[in-house]
């Protein structure tokens, strides 16, 4: 459908003045509803670079002080904050670990469930469907217990593997959806043209699902980067804290002492999610839908 036609269909048919009035109300209402979000994130940015922020978003007194944690130790009286870079590295290890495990395993399982005639395929599919709707967080206590028995508690690996495992049903389901979208004819054609099943997979199908897999990888990365409950529960050693736990500590202890520092740290922590979000917002808007085909 052409674009002009689409606009034609959507435009409410009021009189001229009414139409402008209608539009004004429309944009006014939506903007008002969105205002809290706009102000909050605007404040985060303004607060991180100014001494004081007036009524939400008007900065006063520019300062780079909040960002001093990037280049040196930060001290509050007797308390010395730990350096930011090892903490960032912990977050990065968790995020990359989750991405690597989750994507590679989900890629294999998603492919098999979409394309291969393997035994128990239907049972496995039902299991995945059940699990991807089931809130895995309810199992946290038992997972803690099991990791403890295994001696894995208080390691980054425990967070990585638990997070990846709990995300795998969803990731598998998403990736299966991307494989499902590749026409069977294309794969059959590759086989006839001389590919083995494995060659067809990686020469023909994988290039076609790459954008989808990239989206899932980004979600996995963000899930790992944003994670805090597992880190809070499984990690006791401050040297292993990721940024999320570091910031929770700051919120608790220094919220009233140095808002600028807190805002800057929070913004620093938000940079990867925000950058990825800007790049992949379209994928963000589609992905939650994949699960509701039958609806």
């Amino acid at each position: 459908m052409g674009r002009s036609q689409e606009i034609y269909i959507r435009a409410p048919r009021f009189g001229n003045i009414n139409r402008i009035l209608g539009k004004a109300v429309l944009y006014g209402v939506v903007t008002a509803m969105t205002l809290p979000i706009i102000i909050m994130y605007l404040w985060l940015f303004m607060q991180s670079v100014s001494e004081k922020v007036l009524i939400g978003f008007i900065p006063s007194g520019f300062t780079a002080d909040g960002w001093r944690f990037l280049w040196g130790p930060v001290k509050f009286g007797e308390v010395l904050l730990p350096p930011i870079w090892p903490i960032t590295l912990n977050s990065l290890i968790i995020a990359l670990g989750v991405t690597g495990i989750e994507v590679s395993i989900a890629l294999m399982a998603g492919y098999a469930l979409s394309r291969l005639r393997v035994p128990f395929r239907d049972s496995f599919l039902i299991l995945i469907i059940i699990l991807h709707a089931f809130p895995g967080i309810t199992l946290l206590i038992a997972i803690f217990y099991l990791l403890n028995v295994m001696g894995l508690i208080n390691t980054l690996l425990s967070v990585i593997i638990a997070k990846a495992a709990l995300e795998i049903p969803m990731a598998t389901w998403l990736i299966k959806g991307f494989f499902d979208a590749v026409p069977w004819d294309v794969e059959a054609s590759a086989l006839v043209d001389g590919c083995s099943r494995l060659q067809a997979w990686y020469k023909v199908i994988l290039p076609l699902v790459k954008p989808g897999v990239a989206a899932v990888a980004i979600f996995a990365f963000l899930a790992g980067w944003n994670e805090f409950i597992y880190a809070l529960t499984f990690i006791f050693d401050p040297n292993l804290y990721p940024l999320s736990i570091h910031i929770i500590g700051l919120i608790g202890e220094f919220r009233y002492v140095d808002y600028t520092l807190l805002a800057a740290t929070a913004l620093f922590y938000s940079i990867p999610p925000l950058v990825f979000f800007v790049i992949t917002q379209k994928a963000f808007m589609k992905v939650p839908l994949v699960g509701m085909k039958g609806a």
Partner: peptide, 9 residues
Amino acid sequence: FQSYALYPH
């Protein structure tokens, strides 16, 4: 093939 099944990439 009926759909031609050309490799889009």
